[in-house]
Design a protein around this nucleic acid. Structure first.
Lengths: 340, 340
DNA sequence: CTGTTAGCGCCTTCAG
DNA sequence: CTGAAGGCGCTAACAG
C-alpha cells in the first residue's frame, strides 16, 4: 500500500500538499495539483482511513441497531437514516438484533471504539448496558420507547412516537364507529412499544366505559404470520370480535389475509386497524386504516439529531413525534347483528 | 479519555509496562502489575482501538455480507461465523443487502479500510465491484455461487454447496418414487443459487427421459410466502403436479402450509421436497424431505478459511460442500390415479 | 501558496 | 524485567 509520503515523493511535493489536494482543504496551484493527482493514480494511493481517523479524532462511521431489518418498518427507518447521514459524509453500519439482548450487547461490544455515533432501538438494552461501551466520545440517540420502569435516556437524545396516544386514537375510532367487541393482536411480549400500545388500547376502552375482554387480547409478534394466526384464533371464537386493532401494520396485513381467506369481508364483517402506516398499508386491498407515524420520519429525525450532536450540540433533546389517524377502507361500522 | 501515558504516570511505570500488562505480552512483576491494574481502574482506561489497529497494522473487525439476515438460513450461517471468529478474537459486522446490488456496493464502500476480512454471498457483486474497495490487505471469502458467466472468484477463497447436484438428487428421488408431473418453485429470479437449482431440476428430468413442463416451473423468492403463492397457483391448475421441488426449505414450508390449507394431504396428495435442511425442516409436520447442506457448516467453513487466510495462508482455496438427501415424511409415491 | 514539524495513541524493538 | 525512543499514516499548525 502506497502512503502519502510515497505520493509526495513521486510528485516532488510535500505531504501537506498531497493532503490538501486529497482533502480539498486548501488551494493548491493547478500544476502541482495535477502532478499530485497523477502520482496518486500511478501509485493507486488510497488514504488509510484508520490513520486519518486517529489523526482527526473522528471516525466517519455510525451504527444503526434495530430489532429486525427485514421488517419493512425498520428497513424504511434505515433508508431514511442512510440518506441523511450520507449527505454529511458518514457511513452507517446496520445491525439487526432479532430482539435478543445478547445480540444487542454483542454489537455494542464489537462496535465500541469504532463508531462515533449510534442510533439504537432498544428492546432490552438500557443505560447500564450501553454506558460501559459507548463512552464520552460517542453520540447516542435512542429511537422508540425504553422499557418502562427502567431509566429513561438521560444524557442521550431520544425520539419516539406516541404509542399510547396512537393506540388510544385507533381504538377510539373503532368505538366511534360503534364497535364494542374489539380485539387486540399484540407485538412481541414485553417489548416497550407493544406494551404501550396495549396500554393505549385499554385506556380507550376504559374511557368509553367498555370492559376490556381479556380473551380478545392475543399474543403475537411484529409479523404477518402473527397477524394470520391471531386472526384465525379470534375468528374461531364462539363470539368473535367485530373489530381488531393490530399492534402494527404487518400484523394487520396478516389479519386481513387471514380474514379474507376464511371468507370474512373486510370491513363489512370485520374492521381492521394497523399502526405505523408503512408503504404497504395504503396498497393493501382494502387499504388499511392505520395510525400514521411514518418510519422515514422517525429515521430522518433520529439521524438529524445525531448529526447535530456530532457537530457540537451538548444538551440532550427529547422528541415525541406526532401521529395521525388515517382512515382508509378497512374500517366500518359493525353489522347490525353483532357478532356473526 | 485516559491514555496509556496517563496510566503509566499514575502507576509510576513506563508505557511499555502498561502495554505489557494490558496485552499479556510479557512477564511483569506481580507488584507492578497490580499497580498498573489499579491505575487502569482508577482512570477507567480503555485502549484506543483505532490507535492499536494502526500500530499493529491489523483491524480485528470482519464483515459478513448476506442477502437477508432474517432468513433462518442466513442467520444460521451468521451464528456459525460468529462462533468461529469470536474464538479468534475478531468481531464481525453483519450486513443484510436484500439482494440489492446497490446495497452490496454501498457496504463494500463504507466498510473499505475498516475491516481486515470479508465473507460475502454475492447476489450480484463480482470482481470488478469488490476489487476497487477491498485491496491487498483484506481477506475475502465468497460463499455460494457467483453469477454464471462472470469471472469466478480467483484470488479469493470460495466455499459453496453443490446446487446443481443437490437439486438433481432431489428430483431424482421424486422420480424414483414414481412422480412424473414434478413442479419447481424457484428462488429469486436470476440469482446464482436458484438458477443452478433449476439447472439441476432440468437435468434430472432430462436424464430420466421426462419432459420439462414449463408451466410447472413457477417464479418465487426465498420466502414462505412465495411457497404459499406458488403452491396455490400450482394446485389450481387443471392438471396439478403430484410433487413439487422447492428451491429452499422456506419455500417448501410455505408450500406445505398452503397445500394443507387447501385440503391436500402431504405426502399422500402431494410430495414436497426442500433444500438446505434448516432447523425448521425437521420440525415441520410432516417433517420435510430435503437436501441437507447445513448452513452452520457453510458458515463455519467460510469463517475458518478466513481465519487461515488472516494468519498467513496465501494460495486461495476452493471448497465444495457435500450434500445429502434426507428422506423424511413429506414425500411418497403418487396416488395410483395420477393427477387428482 | 507550499513545506516542515509535531503530534494522534499505541506497540515494539532495543538497550539497561 | 523495565524504560526510552521510534514509527504506524495522516492531519494541522506554523513558518517561509
Amino acid at each position: 500500500m502506497a502512503t502519502i509520503r510515497d505520493v509526495a515523493r513521486l510528485a516532488g511535493v510535500s505531504v501537506a500538499t498531497v493532503s490538501h489536494v486529497v482533502n480539498g482543504t486548501h488551494y493548491v496551484s493547478p500544476e502541482l495539483r495535477q502532478r499530485v493527482l497523477e502520482a496518486i493514480e500511478a501509485l493507486n494511493y488510497r488514504p488509510n482511513r484508520l490513520a486519518r481517523a486517529l489523526s482527526r479524532k473522528a471516525v466517519p462511521l455510525l451504527a444503526l441497531v434495530v430489532p429486525d431489518i427485514s421488517n419493512p418498518y425498520w428497513s424504511c427507518v434505515a433508508r431514511a437514516v442512510q440518506d441523511v447521514v450520507d449527505r454529511n459524509g458518514y457511513s452507517v453500519i446496520v445491525c439487526s438484533t432479532d430482539g435478543l439482548l445478547q445480540r444487542e450487547v454483542r454489537f455494542l461490544q464489537s462496535l465500541s471504539g469504532w463508531i462515533s455515533g449510534l442510533i439504537l432501538h432498544a428492546y432490552h438494552v438500557t443505560h447500564e448496558h450501553i454506558d460501559p461501551y459507548m463512552g464520552e466520545g460517542v453520540a447516542v440517540v435512542i429511537i422508540g420507547d425504553f422499557m418502562a420502569g427502567h431509566d429513561q435516556p438521560r444524557t442521550w437524545d431520544h425520539v419516539r412516537g406516541d404509542n399510547e396516544g396512537g393506540a388510544q386514537a385507533a381504538v377510539e375510532h373503532l368505538i366511534s364507529l360503534g364497535h364494542r367487541r374489539i380485539a387486540f393482536i399484540q407485538g412481541p411480549a414485553g417489548t416497550p412499544s407493544s406494551t404501550r400500545r396495549l396500554t393505549g388500547f385499554r385506556r380507550a376502552l376504559e374511557r368509553a366505559g367498555l370492559p376490556v375482554l381479556e380473551e380478545l387480547v392475543v399474543p403475537g409478534s411484529y409479523t404477518r404470520e402473527a397477524g394470520r394466526a391471531g386472526t384465525e384464533r379470534l375468528l374461531a371464537m364462539p363470539e368473535p370480535p367485530t373489530a381488531v386493532f393490530c399492534a402494527n401494520d404487518l400484523i394487520a396485513l396478516g389479519a386481513l389475509e387471514a380474514a379474507q381467506q376464511l371468507g370474512w369481508q373486510v370491513p363489512r364483517d370485520l374492521s381492521i386497524v394497523g399502526f405505523d402506516d408503512i408503504d404497504e398499508a395504503a396498497r393493501a386491498r382494502p387499504p388499511l386504516t392505520t395510525i400514521r407515524q411514518p418510519p422515514q420520519h422517525l429515521g430522518a429525525v433520529a439521524a438529524e439529531l445525531l448529526m447535530e450532536r456530532l457537530s457540537g450540540r451538548v444538551e440532550p433533546r427529547h422528541t415525541v413525534l406526532e401521529f395521525s389517524l388515517v382512515v382508509r377502507e378497512s374500517t366500518a361500522p359493525p353489522k347490525p347483528t353483532a357478532g356473526r
